[in-house]
């Protein structure tokens, strides 16, 4: 039982973005994809989500091609619809799948700690709250796989750390498969079971690192720091290597 990304290639005209990306994420694992900004991480995520087509390669989930119903997606920007309330935004995802269950939507809001904010509009919420609504929206459709595209990139450091912990708490409840894209090595080491390191464009997998630290993780821990160093070296080595 796993999500397999097999030899995915993608070009946009002359721009070669993904050059045969392959990796596997076991069921219930939290995987982080790290790489420089603009290396094609978002494109890869969109291909997994099925809203972008790969030129070559395939995405296999449990032995079959991945389906839209398997996916929950959290965007880099919170991407809440400004004309809908917090609750309305969560219901939006359900409506897209033809489900209407207001109670469920409400209970999920409660799960991310937004009880009482149901009827607030996005512009009345803080950045962290908006992102929580975004996560909630992705979870409410019961996805097998949760795709997260740098969801905390725009938050301040403190909020970001708090959100990371909350995310792990939520994830711990039902252990979905998570693919979390980030360019922060610190964030990846803090969150992931496994880190997939991508090269500069055109992206290829240069390393897959399993993080073997007990959660909750301590950022000042020796082991934590050594993982960080390892990945950082891994990234910088390829960045200084000549392009092919």
């Amino acid at each position: 039982m796993a999500l397999e990304v097999k030899n995915v290639k993608k070009r946009f005209g002359d721009l070669n973005v993904l050059d045969g990306v392959s990796f596997t994420v076991e069921d219930g694992n939290f995987a982080c994809i790290v790489g420089e900004s603009g290396c094609g991480k978002t494109t890869l995520l969109k291909i997994i989500a099925g809203i972008e087509r790969a030129d070559e390669g395939e995405i296999i989930y449990n032995g079959r091609p991945v389906k839209k119903e398997d996916i929950g997606y959290v965007f880099q920007d919170d991407r809440l619809l400004p004309w809908r309330t917090a609750l309305g935004n969560i219901q939006f995802a359900m409506e897209m799948r033809g489900i209407t269950d207001k109670e469920k939507a409400k209970s999920y809001l409660e799960l991310v700690g937004l009880k009482g904010f149901e009827s607030y509009y996005p512009h009345q919420l803080s950045g962290g709250m908006r992102q929580r609504v975004g996560i909630c929206r992705a979870l409410v459709v019961n996805p097998e796989i949760l795709l997260m595209d740098e969801p905390f990139a725009s938050l301040d450091a403190q909020t970001r750390n708090r959100m990371q912990m909350e995310l792990l708490k939520i994830w711990d409840r039902d252990r979905k498969t998570v693919i979390f894209v980030t360019h922060s090595i610190d964030e990846a080491v803090f969150l992931a079971d496994k880190i997939v390191v991508l090269s500069k464009r055109p992206a290829r997998v240069i390393d897959v690192v399993d993080i073997d630290i007990e959660r909750p993780r301590d950022r000042t821990d020796e082991k934590f720091i050594s993982y960080r160093r390892k990945i950082m070296r891994c990234l910088s080595s390829i960045n200084h290597a000549p392009q092919t």
């Binding site: 809203i51 119903e69 996916i71 997606y73 409506e95 897209m96 799948r97």
Partner: peptide, 8 residues
């Protein structure tokens, strides 16, 4: 894109 991601 958001709508598409959720299968709309």
């Amino acid at each position: 894109e958001l709508a598409e991601v959720f299968g709309g």
